[in-house]
């Protein structure tokens, strides 16, 4: 037992590269969250207020995103689109896959958020002469946002964790970079241990920032 010699030095030497890759992870997760929030909002509104093909599209999207593995969704954007002649770069595959997934999950959160705001709020706003746009943007959406704030934070954490799938499709975010170095040096355990710590730190940072933001945003 323990006749294994740990070699941390090569890992530490490439730590700057790993941290750089960690930033790529954050970048792709953040971008897909921004896209996911916008699309998710549209999907939720389409599911609640539309009929016909648009509603059908929204429901299909939401249920596919929620009921198949994220890796399957990445395969679809990789192999699947590749089969019909659309060849995306690994970066685009990850971005598209994560955005697709986040949009589906966030759509359901938004739907819950809209249902949590009583429709009398909208009525009261309209009675003051606000038009529909003003009533939504000033009164309803800020309250929905508060309800979905916590789920959005969780989804952001998920986006970071999911982006590690980049490793399986040849994208050099934190996990992909780790695998690249690990397979070159054969210090697999050491590399992945350090990467695990880096992920832990990233996740804790996100949660801390979210908590600080919440304190500033929600004083009621």
């Amino acid at each position: 037992m323990f006749d294994y010699n740990f070699h941390w030095r090569p890992v530490l030497r490439t730590l700057p590269d790993l941290i750089q890759a960690g930033l790529t992870t954050l970048e792709v997760a953040t971008l897909s969250m921004v896209i996911g929030i916008l699309l998710g909002l549209c999907l939720a509104l389409a599911r609640m207020n539309m009929t016909g093909p648009l509603k059908w599209l929204a429901v299909t999207w939401i249920e596919l995103a929620r009921n198949t593995p994220a890796l399957f969704q990445l395969f679809f954007f990789g192999f699947g689109l590749g089969a019909i002649g659309i060849n995306l770069t690994p970066y685009t595959i990850i971005l598209a896959g994560l955005s697709f997934n986040c949009a589906g999950y966030l759509a359901e959160n938004f739907r819950g958020g809209f249902q949590a705001v009583p429709d009398t709020q909208l009525k009261a706003a309209r009675c003051l002469g606000m038009n529909a746009w003003q009533a939504y943007t000033r009164i309803v959406i800020p309250q929905v946002f508060r309800v979905v704030y916590h789920p959005i934070t969780n989804q952001m954490v998920w986006a970071v964790l999911m982006s590690s799938l980049g490793m399986l499709i040849g994208f050099r975010e934190l996990s992909g970079e780790t695998q690249f170095f690990a397979s070159r040096t054969f210090r697999i355990f050491e590399y992945f241990a350090v990467t695990a710590v880096l992920y832990y730190v990233i996740v804790k940072l996100i949660l801390a920032v979210s908590r600080l933001l919440a304190m500033r945003l929600f004083r009621y």
């Binding site: 009583p118 009398t120 709020q121 009261a124 706003a125 309250q143 929600f218 009621y220």
Partner: peptide
Amino acid sequence: QQWNSFPH
């Protein structure tokens, strides 16, 4: 009847 203050 329900006062509908804007809570935020």
